[in-house]
Design a protein around this nucleic acid. Structure first.
Lengths: 213, 213
DNA sequence: AGACTGGTGTTACCGCAAGTAACTAGCATG
DNA sequence: CATGCTAGTTACTTGCGGTAACACCAGTCT
């Protein structure tokens, strides 16, 4: 039967595709994001053109590779966001989930945070985009969750998106710094960040003799 | 006199250096951060090896180029942080200053946000560092300012650094998203972010029928 | 004067990476 | 048998970062 064979073919090529992705992942996690296509092909036991047939170009391969981890990370963040307890508990659980993820697999983190490799370089002009896909997706997702669950008045969706991206960025920058220097425990870091989100910045008094922040 | 001539030499080479930097800047702002050394050399009317004599390698050139803009941006942020008004006014002014900067010169922004080009690739292993120098510096600076001006208890410096990086990250991610989509005015964006920092997330009630955030 | 130094600049090259063209071999289907 | 589809190859082009070797042109030291 034609469709049956087609399906076999498709699943076969897709299996091959994931095999190649797994080889690529091994290399990227060993050599970093600057791994060469040759090295990846060698790891997979084949040569370059096959990679190009499957993924178009290097950014295509990297996008496919990033998607898996991004999906996985987002899933764990979602479940953390649904953990039991009050709102503060949930926020702290989510921060913990994120920080734990980047702590246990820093190479994956580094790979995912590499900004997109200028997939469309049309005509050489460049808009002012930076675009780390993982950050964008996390921000959008969190924004949606906030909009679903909180009532922020008439422009809830707008505010929620801003907050989503803002909170994600807070988590990202603090996590990146923390991962590099490790000047405090994860627990404390989470607590301080939650304090920040809980408005302690506004409540805290000026230091004596300061003109105030 | 020896020193006098030495000084002349030094100023001369330094002038040349800044000329080269200006040429590099023109090219980078035209072609994006992936501009080639050849292109930069051509723009400066010379050939590659001179660039390498002045800056060591490409990342050296880029670091020199980034430093100027980073210093300038940090200076304007500092003054915004010292603007008149109460604390919220100052925070909003700083957010405005940052967003205005990335809005008016998006190519500079894109260039500055490019993570460091793996300056030391020792032995091929990679720690989990990402390191966008501008973000780090902004975070550290803001942390210092916070530590100077606020009394956050016994571990003020620790909390202040966390908050510095966190707030900077919030500003960064929200700004990056906003710059790409422009779904609202800068004024509103600033207000929503300040609301977030002022603890509105904790104050806001759950939406009816939601399990709460 | 002549050798030395330190800057400017060049041409010509190496190594390596992304990406492609052209071709081959298996294997099912009309 | 011919057709087409896939997985695979070798060998190439193009372009980049980076370097070696050399030339020129000040002033400086002896």
């Amino acid at each position: 039967m034609e469709t049956g064979q087609r399906d076999d073919q498709r699943t076969a090529t897709q299996r091959r595709r994931t095999e190649l992705l797994e080889a690529a992942e091994r290399v990227v996690l060993r050599d970093g994001p600057e791994a060469s296509m040759n090295a990846i092909a060698a790891e997979a036991g084949i040569t370059k053109p096959i990679l190009y047939r499957h993924f178009g170009d290097k950014s295509g391969l990297y996008r496919a590779l990033a998607k898996r981890h991004t999906d996985a990370l987002l899933a764990t963040l979602r479940t953390a966001l649904d953990s039991p307890g009050d709102r503060r508990d949930r926020v702290e659980a989510t921060l913990h989930a994120y920080l734990s993820a980047i702590e246990t697999r820093p190479q994956v983190y580094r790979f995912l945070m590499h900004p997109a490799e200028t997939p469309s370089d049309e005509k050489g002009f460049d808009v002012g985009r930076h675009s780390v896909p993982l950050l964008r997706r996390m921000g959008e997702d969190l924004g949606e969750v906030i909009a679903e669950r909180l009532d922020l008045g008439p422009d809830t969706r707008e505010v929620a998106r801003v907050w989503g991206h803002g909170i994600v960025g807070m988590m990202y920058a603090a996590g990146d710094w923390w991962l590099g220097e490790r000047p405090l425990s994860r627990d404390l870091l989470v607590r301080h960040l939650a304090d920040l989100l809980w408005g302690r910045l506004a409540e805290t008094g000026d230091r004596a003799g300061s003109r105030g922040l």
